[in-house]
Amino acid sequence: MLSFILRRLGQSVLVMAAVSLISFSLFNFVGDPVNNMVGQEATREDRVFIRQELGLDDPIPVQYFRFLGNALQGDFGLSYRIKRPVNELIKERLPATLELVLVSAVIALVFGIAAGVYTGIRRNGWFSKFILSGSLVGVSLPTFIIGIGLIYLFAVTLRWLPSSGRAGVVELGWWKTSFLSVDGWRSIILPAITLSLFQLTMILRLVRSEMLEVMQTDYIKFARARGLSERAINFVHALKNTLVPVITIIGLNIGGLIAFSVITETVFQWPGTGLMFIQAVDFADVPIMAAYLCFVALVFVIVNLVVDLLYVLIDPRIRIAGR
C-alpha cells in the first residue's frame, strides 16, 4: 500500500520533470529570449548585458537546473509583453479559472452520473433514448459553438444573463470569488454550463456503457438467481462496480476541463488563466506559456494522484495486492 503510493509519487515527479524540461526548451526554441525582452532599438552592449544577466551563456544543464530551482519557488520570470512577474499574473487569474472548472466539474459529474445510471437501468425507456440521442448531439457540439449559442440566446435575445466578463467578485484576501454575490453567480453560470456540457455527455455515455457491461456479468446474474431485489442489484451491486472505471476517467476529464477552459474563457472573455494563455501564444510570450504548461501538468498530476488513492479505497483487489 505504502509502496504503491510511493511509486505513484515517483511517477508524478518524473512527469513533472519531463514537463518542466519541455517548458524550459520553449525558451530556447521560440525566438531569441533577448530579442523578446528588449525592443529593436537596444544596443549591442545592452544585449550582451542582458544575456549575462539571464545566464544565457551558461551550459544548458546549468540553465535547466536554474530554471527548475526558480520554477519550484514559483518564479517563471517576467512576462515579455506585460513586463510583470508571471507568478503574480497567474495568482491574479487563478481563482477565476479554478472556480469555473469547479462549477463545471460538479455540473458534469452530478448530471452525467445521474443520467448515465438512469439510461443504464431504463435501457429501453423513451426518456433514455431521448437522453442518448441528445448526448450524441452533445459530443458533436464544439465548445465554442455552445458558448456562442448560449450567449446569443440568453444574453443577446433574452437579455437574462451577462454575455461576458466576470462581474460581482468579492475579495477574500487575494482570492477573488464569484460565489458570494448574485451577479457573480449570474456571470459564472453560462461559461460553466458551456464548459461542462461536453464532459457531461462523455461521463453519461461512459457510465451507461459501464453499467450495461456490469449488468452482463455473472455476479449480477447470480444476484438475480438469489432473488435479490432490482433495487439492491442496481444500486448495491452494479453501481459500485460501474464507478470503478468511471473514477479513473474523471481524472482525465478534469484535465479536459482545464484545456477547454481556454476556449470557454475566450468566448466569454472570462479573465482566467486560459485567456491569458491564448494571448501569450498570440504574442509568443514564452514565460507565461511555460508557466501555464507546468500549471496544467501539475493540476493533472495532483488530480490523478487523488484519483489513484480513491481507486485504492474503492477497489479491495488493489488495496490488498498492492501492499
Partner: peptide
C-alpha cells in the same frame, strides 16, 4: 503518459503557436 498530462487541444494550440 507525459504527453497525456497536457490535454490534446492545449498541446495543439502550443505546437501550433510554436
Amino acid at each position: 503518459d507525459i504527453q497525456l498530462t497536457i490535454p490534446g487541444i492545449l498541446l495543439a494550440i502550443l505546437i501550433n503557436g510554436i
